[in-house]
């Protein structure tokens, strides 16, 4: 199928055919991340502490900073990445609500990323001895499973993610491309800070292929300077700015892979010839922006599932419970274990 085809419906059908008990959307987890991360950012901003805050959903990036900029770990958001948050909620709130023994739950994440495999094994990302996520497979592995299951993928009918945890917003969808986390966060942070609904929710300055994108966003009376970097070479440049005290910005999104998750290390491999003629990143990213555009709800804080989750379980972003389940800490690491 052509590069950048949105196959959500067929994918869900295939997963159901493969025999998963429930098929949920990590985008919901992404919405949850925005709630926590947005809240964390507003707190840091008001206290003017540990700024700029840097996103922490890219595990390759997290390992990079833990190895290379140990003195700057405090800048990282303490939020777990979306699928880890989601896993933690599934094994607590969801299990309790649906009367499932959390120990019998096996959370499988399908990710565009191989670093997520490493992330899922991090000891910090567990709760009461249970890993938040049990198995991570990549897009390529899922494709292989579908083939192995003898499923004729292109002929599948569409189906929807399972209720009630399958609801997600357009904000969650754009997490998969560089600038997406920043844009999703700005939508929520703006409205939280001003209390007003945004007129235009697209933040075009943080979109696109440029390695480092800088944007100044006016929120109420505040001016927030945001930086989006993707690819670790660009991350390095930003970290050098932060390290040397030259950073005049408050919010930074970093993705380890050039282009963000759409170009992750677990995505379908494109030959040199294809890469020479097709802008793979743009095609995949455009598909995500289309999903966002077509979504009814495009702001994380308006996600009904998330609202209910806070009402029934987490109380509010940054609550004690939220910290217990959805936040983590970072550990300085040696580059070489020799």
């Amino acid at each position: 199928m052509p590069i950048g085809t949105n196959v959500t419906g067929k994918m869900v059908t295939a997963l159901k055919k493969l025999g998963f008990n429930k098929v949920f959307d990590t985008n919901t987890g992404a919405d949850l991340t925005i709630m926590e991360e947005g809240n964390e950012f507003i707190e840091r901003l008001s206290e003017n502490k540990n700024l700029p805050m840097i996103t922490s959903c890219s595990p390759g990036w997290v390992k990079y900073i833990e190895m290379n900029y140990t003195e700057n770990l405090k800048h990282l958001s303490s939020c777990k990445s979306p699928h880890e948050m989601y896993g933690a909620i599934l094994k607590t709130y969801y299990a309790e609500k649906n009367n499932i023994n959390p120990n019998s739950i096996c959370v499988v994440s399908v990710m565009p990323c191989v670093a997520k495999k490493y992330e899922a094994n991090r000891e910090e990302l567990s709760n009461q001895g249970m890993k938040d996520v049990d198995i991570v497979i990549t897009t390529r592995e899922l494709a292989r499973m579908i083939k192995q299951g003898n499923i004729e993928f292109v002929e599948l009918e569409d189906s929807s993610f399972d209720e009630p945890m399958g609801e997600a917003t357009g904000a969650g969808a754009i997490f998969g491309t560089t600038g997406g986390v920043m844009e999703a966060a700005l939508r929520t942070v703006s409205e939280k800070l001003t209390g007003n609904s945004l007129e235009k929710i697209e933040f075009e300055t943080v979109r696109g292929e440029e390695g480092i994108k800088r944007a100044t966003v006016t929120i109420g009376e505040k001016e927030i300077k945001a930086v989006v970097a993707h690819g670790l070479a660009n991350a390095q440049k930003i970290m050098e700015e932060i390290k040397s005290g030259k950073a005049d910005y408050q919010f930074v999104e970093i993705m380890a892979c050039p282009g963000g998750c759409v170009m992750g290390g677990g995505q379908p491999i494109k030959s040199s010839k294809t890469r020479m003629t097709v802008d793979v990143r743009k095609k995949r990213a455009d598909a995500l922006y289309t999903i966002d555009e077509k979504s009814v709800i495009r702001k994380s804080h308006e996600n009904g599932v998330i609202k209910k989750l806070y009402d029934e379980f987490l109380e509010k972003p940054g609550s004690h419970k939220a910290h217990e389940l959805l936040h983590t800490h970072y550990i300085a690491k040696e580059k070489y274990n020799i």
Binding site: M1, P2, I3, G4, T5, N6, V7, T8, K10, M11, L15, L18, G19, F20, N21, K22, V23, F24, D25, T26, N27, P82, H83, Y86, L90, I100, S104, I105, C106, V107, V108, S109, V110, M111, P112, C113, I137, T139, L142, A143, M145, I146, F153, V154, G172, I174, F175, G176, T177, G180, G260, C261, V262, G264, Q267, P268, K270, R284, A287, L288
Partner: peptide, 29 residues
């Protein structure tokens, strides 16, 4: 994953990241 799916005692939940859905199709002709 196959092992977990086969295990009747396991309640296997799958979640998919945003970027997967716009690339998975490329693996199929």
């Amino acid at each position: 994953v196959w092992k977990a799916l086969k295990d009747e005692k396991k309640y296997v939940i799958v979640q998919t990241a945003p970027a997967v859905r716009v690339a998975l199709g490329e693996e199929f002709r």
